[in-house]
Amino acid sequence: MNRKLGPLFWIFFILIVLVNLVPYVWTVLTSFKSQNQIFDAGIFPDPFIIDNYVQVILESGFLSNIWNSFVVSGVTSIVCLLIGVPAAYSFARLCFRFRNPLFMLVLFITIFPGIFIISPLFDFLRSIGAIDTYFALILPYVAYFTPLVVWILTGFFRTIHPSIEEVAIMDGCGVFRMIVKIFLPLSIPSILTVGIIAFTLAWNEFLFALIFTSSESARTVPVAISQFQGVHSLDWGQMTAAAVIATIPIVLISVVLQRYIISGLTAGAVKE
């Protein structure tokens, strides 16, 4: 099926690519401009300066926000995988009662609005003195992102043909040994992909981070960026520099691993 694509196709192609890229590219360009030039017209930075980055890194507490986000997202994605891989294996490979209703439940947990359960969690974390700690963020993140990890991984696991596992079992291999020796090595690419997706979600999360942190000791990147203006009184140069620093790793990973991430995000939806 190699028919020619019409002009309408390419018009849409260019429009969609532009609309998707422009807001972010504009943010990147702004971050290299001086305060004066930001208020003037002109698309490209002239002169091209890196002062905004220097100030964000040296003067504001932004580096500690990055570190907080890194620790919280890293631990979250690892714990999500530790809990999620066995659960996804169960959904993908084993037969049991209530499998479909439980799988549906998992699906809906992933999209259940967090604000509706946040006040008792806040009370609980405050009573154990955990507000403004990494724990306060990792706990709800693991609860919220594990179901999504399971949902996507189940889709991935179902695409792996079970015949090798069945042969191993018939040869008298125990089920746990089979999972560790045969199943997991086969699914490492999908597990890594889902780990990256969980990391991204935790890295970008805002609501829990806004409410459960109160100082720089645990405040993560999204909260810092949302409050940037208040502290630096409308300094768009520094704000955009911070936004670029905060998103460049995630954006690069998604673009480089584009194929894997798209197949990950679409795997869950297939064959419900």
């Binding site: 192609f13 969609i16 690519v17 998707n20 890229l21 807001p23 972010y24 504009w26 943010t27 702004t30 991204t200 890295w203 970008n204 805002f206 990147v221 999204p222 909260v223 960026i225 949302s226 940037f228 768009w236 704000m239 955009t240 936004a243 905060a246 998103t247 995630i250 954006v251 990973i253 998604s254 673009v255 584009q258 194929r259 991430i261 798209i262 995000l265």
Partner: peptide, 22 residues
């Protein structure tokens, strides 16, 4: 094309909001 689709997905909502606000 596919990478350009993923870009808004990967950017944090807070960053998207600041970029558009600007």
């Amino acid at each position: 094309f596919r990478a350009s689709i993923l870009l808004p997905w990967a950017v944090a909502p807070v960053v998207a909001a600041q970029a558009w606000k600007f």
